[in-house]
């Protein structure tokens, strides 16, 4: 990026100026809260177990930071934290969320991430991707014969997608303004 002679311009740089900034506390606190929510809340209303807040938060920060590297690191951290609270081998959620973070950051360079409709669609897409890829991984890597319930996954994805819009709206408030 420092070389002015480079004719090929990294897309990340192109949009870098649009990237949102957050306080470090926000970047740590929000995902932790999301994970806590997932661990704690479904005890009282099992329905809320379908909310994949850690994923939605990962997608949000990756989208808004617009940096694939940040997305990768962020996704990996959230995923590993989730893994360590589950009974699964460490790395399953980690790998899936790493990929989600990367792709979300890549996509942010092509879409108007402030748009509610775009957020809805992306939320849906990434949740579906997340569930599907988790299934692929547990089948491929661990050989667990989980069944992939397409209909259920679609419904869960849709539910999460609807949460995306208000959730992201709230998270928008936490952005730092230059």
């Amino acid at each position: 990026m420092t070389d002015p002679q480079a004719t090929f311009v990294d897309p990340a740089v192109l949009r870098k100026k649009d990237a949102s900034k957050f306080k470090a506390a926000t970047l740590i606190g929000v995902p932790l809260a999301a994970i806590l929510f997932q661990v704690y809340v479904p005890r009282f209303s099992p329905f809320l177990a379908y909310l994949e807040l850690p994923l939605l938060v990962t997608v949000y920060f990756s989208l808004m930071r617009r940096s694939p590297v940040a997305g990768v690191i962020f996704g990996a951290c959230v995923g590993l934290a989730q893994d360590s609270l589950s009974h699964n081998p460490l790395g399953m959620f980690g790998i899936v969320k790493t990929l989600v973070g990367y792709f979300a950051a890549s996509m942010s360079q092509r879409f108007a991430v402030q748009n509610s409709l775009v957020r809805l669609v992306l939320g849906f897409f990434f949740l579906f991707f997340h569930q599907f890829f988790y299934w692929v991984l547990s089948r491929g890597l661990l050989g667990e014969e989980l069944t992939f319930d397409l209909e259920r996954t679609l419904v869960v994805a849709a539910l999460n997608a609807f949460v995306t819009v208000p959730l992201y709206h709230i998270l928008d408030k936490l952005r730092l303004v230059d």
Binding site: P68, V72, L90, G94, I95, T98, Y102
Partner: peptide, 22 residues
């Protein structure tokens, strides 16, 4: 290819972690 490198490194690291456990 900084982005891809970081991605692959992150995934490889976690695969290694998984492999170790398994």
């Amino acid at each position: 290819y900084r982005n891809q490198t970081v991605l692959l490194a992150a995934i490889l690291a976690q695969l290694a972690l998984l492999a170790y456990q398994v």
